[in-house]
Design a protein around this nucleic acid. Sequence first.
DNA 1: CAATCTGGCTGAAACGTTTCATCCGCGTGG
DNA 2: CCACGCGGATGAAACGTTTCAGCCAGATTG
Lengths: 333, 333
Amino acid sequence: MVGIKDVAKRAGVSIGTVSNVVNRPHVVAVATRNRVLSVIEELGYVRDESARQLRAGRSRIMGLLVLDLGNPFFVDVARGAEQAAHAEGLNIITCNSGQRSDLEASYLAMFAEQRVRGVLLSPVATSGEALRAFRRSGTPYVFVDRKAPTSEASSVAVDDLAGGALAARHLLETGHHNIAFVNGPAILAQCRDREQGVRTALAGSAAELTVLEAIGLDVSSGRDAGARLLGMSPRPTAVFCANDLLALGVLQAMVGAGVRIPEEMAIVGYDDIEFAGAAAVPLTSVRQPAQRLGRTAAELLLAETADTTVEHQAVVFTPELVVRESTRVRRGA
Amino acid sequence: MVGIKDVAKRAGVSIGTVSNVVNRPHVVAVATRNRVLSVIEELGYVRDESARQLRAGRSRIMGLLVLDLGNPFFVDVARGAEQAAHAEGLNIITCNSGQRSDLEASYLAMFAEQRVRGVLLSPVATSGEALRAFRRSGTPYVFVDRKAPTSEASSVAVDDLAGGALAARHLLETGHHNIAFVNGPAILAQCRDREQGVRTALAGSAAELTVLEAIGLDVSSGRDAGARLLGMSPRPTAVFCANDLLALGVLQAMVGAGVRIPEEMAIVGYDDIEFAGAAAVPLTSVRQPAQRLGRTAAELLLAETADTTVEHQAVVFTPELVVRESTRVRRGA
DNA sequence: CAATCTGGCTGAAACGTTTCATCCGCGTGG
DNA sequence: CCACGCGGATGAAACGTTTCAGCCAGATTG
């Protein structure tokens, strides 16, 4: 592999000069510069980032660890973060924990060993061993899609209590009294909060609430939950799902069983991913500003790494209900 | 930041011993080992991967560059690749070119500078400047979802001609004579091949073919294409889309305009992403073994980097048609 | 003409590891 | 008692950069 000293020798200059050509072209005489550049081209020299980084002590990379890249919500978060990072000339590497603590731990360890500039993190749990070890490494981090005390770190989240309440209230207002909530794994704070929001909104109303916990937050878990719903009697007349993937699964199960949506079963999802509007019955959903979430988190992290005196912030966005056919009362029905 | 020599000093041993504790624990006496380990724990020592890599000359990371992470097909590819890489103790970093050559070039440059073990690549174009520069860096790479001459590199792809033909033949067999093909950008070989497959299958038949080129391969481009289809007269009775995102967009446009699927317009997509089956009208689609694609590509790359004498391979998988309601002739209709 | 400045370049140190030759002390076989 | 082997530890070299003090030659100033 060709290194800086091969270039130097070939061009008949010192390695310092080659380095200058690459990093501070203006300080070297134009003739020398061109000679060096053409040798670089000729030899196909590519600088070694690890040496560069070793010397510099820090990298030009920012890590992003998300719960599930299979969820388009997180793809949007990643897009937003990437935008902000590129604007500062940093690269982002995106990793997918798939909600597995062991993978989460392994990626966090990798980030720490890589000495990345900082990490955007949507953790499985804020109290786990993985995270505790990572904290000790001193790598700066910001929580995405997860609230956290500012004493620990900055965070950018969406108000899940409000989101849950938004959905529940909508179902109440459209006349439902027997409501199911299909939740994801309770380890996830998002899930707990959304459920809490639902409970708060329903408290005092006459509505009955059934909570089902799905194994995952994906479409197939949704199908399972849908099957369970179908077996209930009396069957709830409305179901709110902790995210859109679950809702799409439930929807599939209902359509497969010939249940009419929304007449026999109203459905509300969460995230408002692009596919929600294109579903068998377009889904009512609680929209989160995913891209904004990612962008803001990255900006916060950049600000903190640039100037360690900045204080942690906890940004909370407000979700928004998007009503579509899956809960729309038919005119004249 | 605490380094190996801080640990050494604190534990009263040489740095070589600390290194041994970390990398070859068995060669150091158990008493010493424990002492060092507890100092490591106490100080929160994390080894610096850049120094490690500088010394080793190569990294423990594999790069994956995909065309569009917003397309669940590529998320599945990434999953497969990750599986294979983890099995070998390597980490994968996934980057998203979004079909932009400039981003592609920037990520490839990053991979080269990082001296990654190798790169899995689904390129925008195989002839571009970005790729040419990357080749010179000598970083091993394997094409994913893209055929390539074995003289250049290994590749793992799906037979797009067969896929296109599969869809077109299906539409012929279900009685359509006026067929539209909504294609993506012609820079993409996948798109060109699928179109070619369609043309081949239709040659000799009486069917008429209209080709529309969408701006992107996403849902909103599909909606645009759908609008264009609606304006045509005579309007085609069937449409095949170069991927499922496009098909979902077209479907949305049709449903929005009150066009009945499949009676007034049959639709076939490509990729068979999970959302295809959950769509307004479940989509007939050409299924590709996405995860397998990623896994195989990673394995090929690993084999090549382990032993440079292995020859390049061109693996081609065969796609498969999954028929659903969007083209299903209603019984007794 | 001496002193000073300046543009352009050089040489070497430093970054934090890993690795390898070497060394030490001790038990063992001859 | 010597030689040898061996487990265990050490010290220094090397990896490819960046940076910085310093050097040289020529231009500028007083």
